[in-house]
């Protein structure tokens, strides 16, 4: 029996990073209008229906970094979230979908550092990784040394994935070397834990900056690049995702290293999840649809996917009251 539960095992070699290469950064060109056009037509050129759609949505669940990042998080809410991560769908729905004997979990659970021990405990034995947001999330303006300590503390507490935030000022002032050095330090601090670099694209001003920051973060050894903290006014969009995904492809072509992609913030509907999967399939190929290279940072998304799957399984529209809270 193949299990769809995800352990933090990665079939590809981790990106060790490369020396800082300014030409690869400044050589990156982005045309906004053309990006918008491609992003607008991606979801109109491709669609999945019926059982294909059901399969894609089930798969989408396995790529979710089920997230809670609220000031009022408590061990209780985090344990409830972890329960949802372990069993995202009700057993009878699994039955109806014909996948009762095929356990399915989310890709990870994503929390603040203080919640890491609770989550690790709640997910023990499932193989579901715990991700911690770090480095002064969301603004990233804490002292650099403290950021490194924060990473180390989360790793020590059992987080196997660390979502770092970059210093946006380095991007906005074109100080690419400073950005490289910062992220490289973070990567070193992560040790065996996988690092996702959050660009906070909504604060970078231009798509060209998004492309350049992506290149620098990958050169500095990121395992994933991630759009947003979810706290900016503009978070993941298909446009900025397209730019980042193309940066990943460019980096792969230049170095042979595979870097993952994580859109986060604002992805709430099943339809959106499909759009992003289509983006990955079209621009990077099937491997980049898998959880080791693709995650969606979301909290509410899972509920909408459940509703769509219910509709597929039972042929009638669903109500939220039948879905277990996360």
């Amino acid at each position: 029996m193949v299990t769809l539960s995800r352990t933090p095992s990665y079939p590809h070699e981790r990106n060790p990073g490369t020396p800082f290469d300014l030409s690869a950064v400044e050589g990156a060109l982005v045309n906004r209008s053309a990006i918008e056009r491609r992003a607008a037509t991606l979801p109109t050129r491709r669609t999945v229906k019926k059982e294909w759609q059901a399969a894609w949505l089930l798969h989408a669940i396995t790529t979710i970094d089920l997230t809670t990042l609220s000031g009022d998080d408590t061990p209780g809410t985090v344990r409830r979230l972890c329960a949802k991560a372990r069993q995202p769908l009700r057993p009878e729905l699994m039955q109806a979908l014909g996948i009762a004997n095929r356990p399915i979990t989310t890709g990870a659970v994503c929390v603040y550092h203080e919640m890491v021990p609770t989550a690790v405990e709640a997910l023990k034995g499932t193989g579901i990784p715990v991700a911690a947001v770090s480095t002064g999330f969301p603004a990233g303006l804490n002292p650099h040394a403290l950021k490194l300590k924060e990473i180390e503390a989360s790793v020590a507490a059992g987080a196997t994935e660390i979502d770092i935030v970059i210093s946006r000022r380095h991007v906005l002032t074109g100080n690419w070397k400073a950005l490289y050095d910062e992220v490289k330090d973070f990567r070193a601090a992560c040790g065996p834990a996988h690092m996702k670099a959050i660009l906070a694209v909504g604060e970078l001003g231009t798509l060209k900056n998004v492309m350049r920051a992506s290149m620098v973060c990958m050169q500095a050894g990121s395992d994933f690049i991630k759009t947003s903290t979810g706290k900016e006014t503009v978070n993941a969009t298909l446009q900025n995702s397209l730019v980042m995904v193309r940066a990943i492809r460019e980096f792969y072509e230049q170095t042979g290293y595979k870097v993952g992609f994580k859109p986060a913030g604002g992805i709430r509907t099943a339809k959106q999840a499909l759009d992003w999967l289509i983006l990955m399939k079209e621009e990077l190929g099937e491997e980049w649809m898998q959880p080791h290279l693709f995650r969606i940072g979301a909290s509410a998304l899972l509920n909408d996917i459940e509703r769509q799957l219910e509709h597929f399984a039972y042929g009638r529209y669903a109500s939220m009251q039948y879905q277990p809270l996360g």
Binding site: A55, H59, L97, I99, L277
Partner: peptide, 16 residues
């Protein structure tokens, strides 16, 4: 094809 089989390769299906 069953959902389980489709999960393996995630193809586009027909969308007529």
């Amino acid at each position: 094809m069953t959902v389980t089989e489709l999960l393996e390769t995630l193809p586009y299906g027909p969308a007529p």
